[in-house]
Amino acid sequence: QKVISPESYIKHPLQNKWALWFFKNDKSKTWQANLRLISKFDTVEDFWALYNHIQLPSDLMSGCDYSLFKDGIEPMWEDGRNRKGGRWLITLSKQQRRADLDRFWLETLMCLVGEGFDEHSDDVCGAVINVRAKGDKIAVWTTDYENKDAITHIGQVYKERLGVPPKVIIGYQSHADTATKSGSSTKNKFV
């Protein structure tokens, strides 16, 4: 009789359970009504089963978002874990949709599910990709804009993982500042 090693049939558990959300812009509905939970997963295998099954960001209609958040955190500023938080924001040029968008998003997902920010991964709430005609955006959301050590570590690792050149500056903004901004840009708390 053959003994099968557990490695061949037990799926690889992730540190956290994650929820993937989809937002489709329908102006006749409220923002919250346009936000749908797609699925949750907590293993490497189930992450890929979901990822391989859904459309790439570059194939989505303008106005759509994907959000990947830890189970129990809703992808909105109002959630208790986001209220005092902020985001590292990557803004992409129109040319980058073809070259970088899908690659950046997959790398972002792998940073999250693989706990790529070391002990500071606990500060991560999730990530959001906004597909927009005027320019796409990807952001990693963290829980507390005052946690300087966590935020700077996450920013440095994230920039490296995306392969963003050192001379390109990325900014971290609090959700409170984003929510109350008057012009088109929010001031950076960290760069």
Partner: peptide, 20 residues
Amino acid sequence: GKRQYNRVFLLGFQFIPACI
């Protein structure tokens, strides 16, 4: 400790059918 997986490890599972 934390279950940390690097990109090479994760990518290695992308096209392996999972036993469910």
